[in-house]
């Protein structure tokens, strides 16, 4: 009987460990490192948006999307010589089999990747990893995520990088019907 209880406890502990968000390992590894900046936003903060009055239907959609979020975590390092190495390391610490790549951006001075975790047709986690010549940032947003609203949420919360997802909401130019010439 004791063995069964012990096994159940062990399973629960193990499941709890896996239930942690993707950058928990990063947080654990670098939380004592003063050169990193860390931000954690709780579900309570997002819940405050439920009571806000929206001026426009568009604002209402954004507020509704924000109120469904359960948390946000950011780990960032500015003026980092090892930003590219940290970027590569992120992919070794994140259990990639649980995520799908959503978008990849390569600018002249930085790389960005967006990953999502999807189950039952709903997105439960969005990860943004950014590594440049000087800066590194990894962000995880979890809860019920509406991808259409993410870039707007990013603007509302001043999270740099999420505006890249705005392009996903715009119709593809190639889909447009060619204009008739007279």
């Amino acid at each position: 009987m004791k063995k069964i209880i012990a096994a159940v406890v062990l399973m629960l502990v193990a499941t709890g460990g896996f239930a942690q968000d993707a950058i928990s390992k990063f947080f654990s590894k670098y939380q004592a490192d003063e050169s990193f900046s860390q931000v954690t936003v709780s579900s309570k903060m997002f819940g405050l948006f439920t009571n806000m009055e929206a001026d426009t239907p568009e604002d209402k959609e954004v507020l509704n999307a924000i109120s469904k979020l359960k948390g946000l975590r950011i780990l960032a390092k500015e003026d980092a010589r090892n930003a590219r190495e940290l970027y590569k390391e992120a992919f070794t610490l994140i259990p990639m089999k649980d995520y799908e790549e959503l978008l990849s951006v390569r600018d002249k001075d930085k790389d960005m990747k967006f990953l999502i975790k999807e189950s039952g047709g709903k997105i439960s986690e969005l990860i943004m990893i950014m590594g440049g010549t000087k800066d590194f940032m990894v962000m995880t947003l979890f809860g019920e995520i509406d991808l259409k609203q993410v870039s707007r949420i990013g603007k509302k919360m001043n999270v740099e990088g999420l505006e890249k997802l705005e392009k996903m909401n715009q119709p593809d130019k190639s889909d447009k019907q060619p204009e008739k010439k007279n």
């Binding site: 903060m45 960032a76 940032m137």
Partner: peptide, 17 residues
Amino acid sequence: VDPDVLLKNGPLSFNKP
């Protein structure tokens, strides 16, 4: 207090572009 302002001027302000 508008929670929008708490987010923008609070913990995430370091991340301003």
